[in-house]
Design a protein around this nucleic acid. Sequence first.
DNA 1: TAAATTTTCGACACAGTGTTGAGAACTATC
DNA 2: GATAGTTCTCAACACTGTGTCGAAAATTTA
Lengths: 215, 215
Amino acid sequence: MPAIGSRRGPTKGDQRERALLEAARALFREKPFSQVTIDELANAAGIARSGFYFYFESKQAVLAALCEEVIGQNDQDMAEWLASDGLDREALRQGLAGALGRWRVDGRWLREALANPDPGAEVLEVRERLNAKGCSIVSRRIERDARAGLTVGGPPALLAAMVIKLRIMMFSEAYANPEEYTEDELLDTLTDAILRLLYGTVPESAAPKAPAASA
Amino acid sequence: MPAIGSRRGPTKGDQRERALLEAARALFREKPFSQVTIDELANAAGIARSGFYFYFESKQAVLAALCEEVIGQNDQDMAEWLASDGLDREALRQGLAGALGRWRVDGRWLREALANPDPGAEVLEVRERLNAKGCSIVSRRIERDARAGLTVGGPPALLAAMVIKLRIMMFSEAYANPEEYTEDELLDTLTDAILRLLYGTVPESAAPKAPAASA
DNA sequence: TAAATTTTCGACACAGTGTTGAGAACTATC
DNA sequence: GATAGTTCTCAACACTGTGTCGAAAATTTA
């Protein structure tokens, strides 16, 4: 039993666990979570179905593990904006762009894990933990801006929840309808929407305008 | 086989179908959709499990039927605002309040039907149909406002999707954390958020402000 | 009341999940 | 490179929930 941080190489078991996670990621991309069976998962990783249970408690536990991996990266994407002050449009847009890229690839299962009200206890646990952390960070940023005199429209906690959810919702939407809007259109509109949500009218908007009095 | 609109009273079968729908509504309120079995459903309606299949194809089909009933009422709630022009805050808030009331009661299953990415084919079909209708109505309202010279921040279709999703998200959030915010706080903030999303800074906001430079 | 129909349900087949325990494969140590 | 201890594997089993079928019961219609 190697201690955490041990210098020992990955054992056969570690490789199998990795293989299961990779297999899962690939399968969850291809079809809905509910339609992937543990049998498939195990086979794809080269073990028998019953062997699966040596590594994970359930299919949900695998999804939870995948989430943990990816959401961490997402946090990194947004870190710069979260640390900045006021309406730093560029930092916000950059962060969103990074996250969107990830969603384009793993959107199917991210959606199922993050937008589903009842994704099972394991996923729920991970999600709640990370969501609470995210809300508190965004809240603090909003309060900071409010103290600095920027117009902020509502209770920070509620606004933070809105921003976080709006992001997930729109990425989810973009994954579901990739034809509907271009990536730039989505990013510009979402960036502006978040800024407007927080601060009201925003100058120098880069977002394409609605067709003005053209008719 | 009575024609549609027949004057004949409800047959035994019609009553059973009704009973199933009511039983389902009650059960789906109490626990997650995935944990309600067809056996329970059938028993609650006073028939054997296999009898269930005479009335519905699957559990999902029941959920879809329930959705159809409720979403219609939701549309009525929002009708006044959708028909109005510009930032008619009162109409918007009223509409949202009506819908929120319904969510307070049936939130659990509404969430599972409307926010879940993979709720099964039947529910998906109903949802897509109604969502498309909703988006197109909101889009038209936005275009109308844009032509009337109001500042609108982004492509109407995308903004419409945002508004619709934001509403569902926040009701869903409110159902999940009923302690977190008061009903008024939520309604004010959501109303303002939608208006700000569409038109930028909004005058005479009723929303409670963030703690201004108090520290 | 009899024929037509609608409705009910027991019995079956099946797919997916989760458990167990015996043994094979691996790893560390000498 | 043998050996003791651990890690890993998997066939076999038990279980739960879904969906189908057809014969029989109940209800409606004529």
